[in-house]
């Protein structure tokens, strides 16, 4: 039995852009995004990745979420790769991201040099003091942990940073993100939905 791919060589991002133009969707909102999220275990790195992947799912797109797993997660670094595309995801492991969120110094050192030219980096600047030295990427420094504490959003630094990435990389619409938060926050924690939405708005403006 042979299964043939009917979409051979026709599903590049330019095709997706064309289709989006036909559907009157803003082209930038439907961009392919290959994201790396990295930090310490416990900062909500994997959850942040799930939110981004879930937003892609709600938009009816192809998505993949690949966590780092194993001993590095216990007290060490945690990272995950998230891909959103209109074409089938090739390699779910992102080695050259066009969007990066870093939440600790080791991740900053490891992943900043891997970002593609023209990419976006969001740096948790209340934890990381280093600055990005290359000038072909857009860098956003957000003191997310400090902001979270000031606004009564303790523990939502990750969501603030994701809000910034949403504004900078436009991986989905704000409406989709709001819907995603409503669906992904478990029922027993429903009281946290407004806080998460507030954190996203705060991040988008940061």
């Amino acid at each position: 039995m042979s299964v043939k791919d009917t979409n051979v060589f026709e599903r590049g991002s330019d095709v997706a852009d064309r289709e989006n133009a036909e559907r009157d969707l803003p082209v930038t909102v439907r961009r392919d995004v290959n994201t790396v999220l990295a930090g310490f275990g416990g900062q909500g790195i994997l959850f942040m990745g799930k939110v981004i992947a879930y937003a892609g799912l709600l938009d009816g797109r192809e998505v993949s979420w690949l966590p780092s797993y194993g001993p590095e997660m216990r007290g060490g670094t945690a990272n995950c790769s998230v891909c959103i595309s209109d074409a089938q995801i090739g390699c779910p492991l992102v080695t050259a991201p066009d969007a990066l969120i870093v939440m600790n110094q080791p991740s900053f050192e490891k992943f900043v040099p891997t970002v593609k030219p023209g990419g976006v980096i969001v740096v948790e600047s209340s934890i990381i003091t280093a600055k990005v030295e290359c000038n072909n990427v857009a860098v956003h420094y957000v003191p997310a942990t400090t902001l979270a504490e000031q606004h009564g959003l303790k523990g939502l630094a990750n969501i603030i940073l994701m809000g910034k990435l949403l504004a900078a990389a436009g991986f989905c619409s704000v409406e989709t993100m709001t819907e995603t938060i409503k669906k992904i926050v478990p029922a027993r924690k429903a009281h946290l939905i407004p806080k998460n939405i507030e954190a996203i708005e705060l991040g988008m403006k940061a």
Binding site: M1, S2, V3, D5, V8, F9, I89, G90
Partner: peptide, 27 residues
């Protein structure tokens, strides 16, 4: 036996891989 092809019709170089690696190869 089962297999899947992608752009094989006029291919001069046939890449072959299975499982997750086939996705990397396809990219």
């Amino acid at each position: 036996s089962r297999h899947e092809t992608y752009g094989l019709e006029d291919a001069e170089i046939v890449v072959t891989a299975y499982g997750a690696t086939a996705r990397v190869a396809k990219a």
